[in-house]
Design a protein around this nucleic acid. Structure first.
Ligand SMILES: [Zn+2]
Ligand SMILES: [Zn+2]
Ligand SMILES: [Zn+2]
Ligand SMILES: [Zn+2]
Lengths: 139, 139
DNA sequence: ATTACAAATGCAACTCAGTTGCAGGTGCAA
DNA sequence: TTGCACCTGCAACTGAGTTGCATTTGTAAT
């Protein structure tokens, strides 16, 4: 994939073979992916610590965003909108499948405003859902 | 607090000194509490493993509900509505303070319906928010 | 092409939340 | 009071994520 190289250049990241492999794996998955997932798929092509640091760099530069699954495990998905350095603008819903455990990024119309008790100031809202995904419904 | 004993009886849990202490600590906090928090507050009054198992029992019987903080750490808060065995019905917003790190359970009017891509069936929705809490706004 | 430096990688060792197995202790109902 | 299921404490373990340091590699300037 040429696009991985373009993504790295556009976000001011050096082009390394591991970063390209990670971005390719993330873009070929239709769901969020964890470090252990990547470590297994990359077998002996990359050190486990390097994968952690790669994901951190990609997140900081706005290439991927982190989602916690129901067990607290960090999973990562490519940002669709053009996010930049520490300015993630991914306003979408994260769907957690109770069967396969996968997390899917789904588009939503837009979040409603909520009136909170005085004194609480909201910087960001997060909407998520639990249920059964398309693949698991068919099975 | 007598209420802790009543809570245990009402949810079919045996009355033990550690469970009473944990429930009292949770009810005196105005935010969600983690196992490490409890372990520190209980000092040498309870083994760390017992605290984990206590929280698990309380969650299973609908006394408390678990919330993950932004780092993936499990925190627990008392259920306000009357939840029962494995039937949590806490529909409220979890507010994560970016300053103190505390999580607050806040009431909300009710979640809107969302139209998702065909095939995804929703069992439960979760709404959360990040921002600055009351105490941290004043400071 | 060569050089030079910052940034990326690999390895080892570590931290810390959460789990499991088992022996001994406790709540509770009969 | 007795019995048994359930709870507790201890020890050992798992697995995600981090840190420090020496080595390698990407890139921009010469
Ligand atoms: Zn699924
Ligand atoms: Zn997403
Ligand atoms: Zn705060
Ligand atoms: Zn809550």
């Amino acid at each position: 994939m040429e696009s991985a190289i373009r993504v790295l250049r556009d976000h001011g990241l050096r082009k390394t073979s591991i970063r390209i492999k990670v971005i390719d794996l993330l873009s070929s998955a239709n769901h969020a992916v964890s470090q252990p997932d990547l470590e297994q798929q990359l077998e002996s092509e990359a050190d486990r610590v390097t994968i952690y640091r790669t994901l951190k760099s990609l997140e900081e530069k706005g290439v991927v965003h982190k989602i916690l699954d129901m067990a607290g495990l960090s999973k990562y998905a490519l940002c669709k909108d053009e996010c930049t350095d520490h300015q993630h603008k991914d306003e979408h819903l994260h769907f957690h499948c109770q069967v396969c455990g996968n997390i899917f990024c789904l588009n939503i119309p837009g979040l409603p405003d909520y009136n909170l008790p005085a004194g609480y100031s909201i910087k960001q809202m997060h909407l998520s859902a639990e249920g059964v995904c398309v693949s698991c419904s068919k099975g």
